[in-house]
Design a protein around this nucleic acid. Structure first.
Lengths: 257, 257
DNA sequence: CCGACTTTGTGCAAACGTTCACAAGGGCGT
DNA sequence: ACGCCCTTGTGAACGTTTGCACAAAGTCGG
């Protein structure tokens, strides 16, 4: 519930997976435009965006037929169409709560101002930080959330405060009228229906990397082992055994299995 | 090619979607453990992680049968099993290249050291920053990438440099032996097969939020419009006209269709 | 004006992911 | 020891996403 409302209303209905890739295409398109490339084929654009060309064509076909057969896509025209679909032809004021390193990084982020987003205000709880100027914005007190949101008419809020404070800030943002939240705090936010939350979590990405790295190492170990006559036993589960105590070092219950 | 190697080797094969959620479960489990909860049902854990309980059970079943029917899961035991599956029972030194705000945020990130990851070194190109101390690490010169990677035996590298410098840094990290890369720079990195890249992109998340926000506004405007018969002029939050030129203001070719 | 060539847009099938619904299985009270 | 109740683990249905392969449609040289 509440999460990923999806097709709450049907409308045209562009697949979520496509939406998630449009920004990627957009970036590749801007890079092409910067190099004064006027036209691009699906093959080239797909390569630049790091996806399959059939996928790219299907994605773009959801927005309409903006290509020319035998030729490709007009870069500027496609930039406009994709931008419009994403809602980037309008201005989005964003309120950033939390002026720590992450908040600052966000405020200073290049691709921010350039593509329809604008830092409307920065807020922080720490009185030592309130009043200082970051990326051209005087940091305001988190006490004033409601007022700042009302003033700036921001619909988007970014939360870059420590985890324990995040839910409280979130509630106040929502109460003040924010309907889209970008959450950097490592916890699951509770929001009412109709509010959209997206998460950016450094730790999660690292853990996924670790999983693959571990798997890679393990395969390598298997190879080495096999080459060296070792029994591998345990063809089944990967991580298992292979070294460390094959079972949990922990707590009750571990006995069974 | 190169991207998301996926089942380069088959092995048992835990679905990628499941892997991506395990860190979420792990975090919820740690939160429970902190509150001295000993046992948890799939329903409760799913709620804490913000997912469907059937999904959670299926995910966990991929790692083995670690629950007890009629009771639930032992929190500590499950923490151990999930950690092991993710490879977090070992120590992962991470090299951070780029000591700007993002690099600092990463280095100071709480959930970093606590869960198997360790900042092995910070590097930067800027001579003014090299030598300073951030989060207890003396920043080293990016010239020394190869040496630093060799010294620390890091397999994971985080790239928090500006986009133009990212590919070069990436190449050097890979050449030095790094096989997992967490990329914060807004571009698609090219890496050889066998190297895993994950991306964290603030801008993309914002754009996805904007899309949904736009859609929401649009639906709302439609409603208001119908109810009030008149031109929208500022219905609800969105200031925008929404009507704007239905076609591109841009460049050649727009003529046709 | 025509025919060869190129590249888009899309029908279709397979892979993948999610959700339901329920049988299997374990604890607990009696 | 038995049976009730609870929750896991999973088969099966469903929806979404991917990728192939090709027809449709446009350009360009002659």
């Amino acid at each position: 519930m509440s999460r990923r409302t999806r097709s709450g209303s049907s409308l045209p209905g562009i697949p979520e997976a496509t939406i998630a890739r449009l920004p990627l295409y957009l970036r590749a398109l801007y890079a092409l435009a910067d190099r004064d490339v006027a036209s691009v084929s699906s093959e080239e654009l797909a390569a630049a965006a790091g996806v399959n060309s059939a996928k790219l064509r299907k994605d773009l076909s959801h927005l309409g037929s903006y290509g020319t057969r035998g030729v490709g896509y007009d870069v500027d025209y496609l930039i406009y169409q994709v931008s419009r679909e994403l809602g980037l032809t309008q201005d989005w004021p964003v309120v950033i709560v939390g002026a720590g390193n992450l908040g600052r990084a966000l405020a200073n982020y290049g691709g921010f101002a350039t593509r329809g987003f604008r830092v409307a205000a920065m807020l922080d709880c720490d009185p030592a930080v309130v009043g200082s100027v970051i990326a051209g914005h005087r940091v305001r007190s988190a006490e004033d959330i409601e007022q700042v949101v009302a003033e700036s008419k921001a619909m988007i809020g970014a939360i870059t405060v420590p985890a324990p404070a995040a839910q409280g800030i979130c509630d106040r943002l929502v109460a003040a009228g924010v309907t889209s939240i970008l959450n950097f705090a490592p916890l699951v936010l509770n929001v009412p229906d109709g509010v959209d939350v997206r998460k950016v979590d450094l730790s999660i990405e690292l853990q996924i990397l670790a999983f693959h790295a571990q798997r890679r190492s393990f395969v390598q170990v298997l190879h080495t082992e096999r080459d060296a006559a070792g029994r591998n036993g345990q063809a089944g589960r990967p991580g298992r055994s292979l070294a460390l105590n094959g079972d949990g070092p922990v707590s009750a219950k571990a006995v069974s299995s």
